[in-house]
């Protein structure tokens, strides 16, 4: 069924259509503004939208004879206001519509609709683009986040590895350096007793001088090289007797514990008081 509108109604309808178009334009502008505002604060990317009435004609560019001065990019074209619909002529008289007028109206309506659809399509496209960009940004962010996370995890792992290595080193050095004092004391006591049993104190002065002798132990409990007299008694016979006693006392019992053994393989300073 076809509805036939009166010229008055048609005028009203045209106005309504124009108002609707205006509102859409405003809404569109508002959206652009909002998007632009959001883009400024949320993302550095700027969304630009340009509405074209018609595609610009492609003109072949002339070959440049000299370098062209770079010109600033043209400002985004202002959205052109909608061409005003032709002023409706005041109805002179109410007369039944002409079939040609009806056709023009229909065509205008179709054009309007087409334009609205186009606008809607563009808007949707814009929204889609925006959404996609948002998604891309989020994806990028996620990737960046993942990368940062990975980097942090790597860093953390490195630190953990370093700490683990440090622990292992500490354990190794504990195995090598930290010595159970009771074990060390026991074997040093054995060494002391063995040397003492070979020291002929009768060959040393009754003034009981102090002698210092450095020895370098081997893993097998032997003495590497000759004992070094650091501080003599002042009596050559006494000094000689003490050195001989040290040599006569070797080899010494060594602990099985590697740390204690290592400690004993270090240089040992023997402090003698032969007449005590």
């Amino acid at each position: 069924m076809k509805i036939v509108l009166s010229p008055q109604d048609q005028v009203i309808r045209k106005r309504a259509a124009m108002l609707s178009v205006l509102m859409h334009v405003l809404l569109f502008l508002g959206m652009i503004f909002m998007v632009d505002w959001k883009a400024v604060h949320v993302s550095p990317s700027v969304m630009e939208a340009t509405l074209w009435d018609s595609l610009p004609s492609k003109q072949p560019s002339k070959p440049a004879t000299k370098p062209v001065e770079p010109t600033p990019p043209p400002p985004p074209p202002e959205p052109k206001p909608e061409p005003k619909p032709p002023e409706p002529k005041p109805p002179e008289k109410v007369a039944p519509p002409e079939p040609q007028v009806k056709q023009a109206e229909q065509e205008a309506e179709i054009a309007l609709k087409k334009r609205e659809d186009e606008k809607k399509r563009l808007l949707d496209e814009e929204k889609k683009k925006e959404l996609e960009q948002k998604k891309q940004e989020e994806k990028l962010k996620k990737i960046q986040e993942a990368l940062r996370k990975q980097e942090e995890e790597d860093k953390l792992k490195k630190i953990q590895d370093a700490m683990r290595q440090q622990d292992m080193d500490a354990q190794q050095s504990a195995a090598a350096g930290a010595v159970d004092p009771s074990v060390l004391n026991y074997y040093m006591g054995l060494m002391s007793r063995k040397i003492r049993s070979t020291v002929n104190s009768g060959l040393c002065p009754v003034t009981n001088p102090e002698l210092l002798v450095d020895i370098q132990m081997t893993n097998s409990g032997d003495i590497s090289g000759m004992p070094k007299l650091v501080k003599g008694s002042g009596d050559a016979v006494c000094d000689d007797a003490v050195i001989r006693a040290i040599l006569a006392a070797k080899p010494f019992d060594m602990p099985d514990d590697p740390a204690a053994r290592k400690k004993m393989v270090d240089q040992i300073r023997l402090k003698f008081r032969p007449r005590s």
Binding site: G177, N200, R269, K271, P274, S276
Partner: peptide
């Protein structure tokens, strides 16, 4: 941790040699 490891490493090596005190002597011959 890095600084700690350094401190620990530098603190480690300075350990004195063993000293053994021997008083008297029981050998007579």
């Amino acid at each position: 941790i890095g600084a700690g490891v350094l401190v620990w490493m530098f603190a480690l090596p300075a350990q004195a040699a063993l000293e053994l005190e021997i008083s008297g002597g029981s050998a007579i011959q």
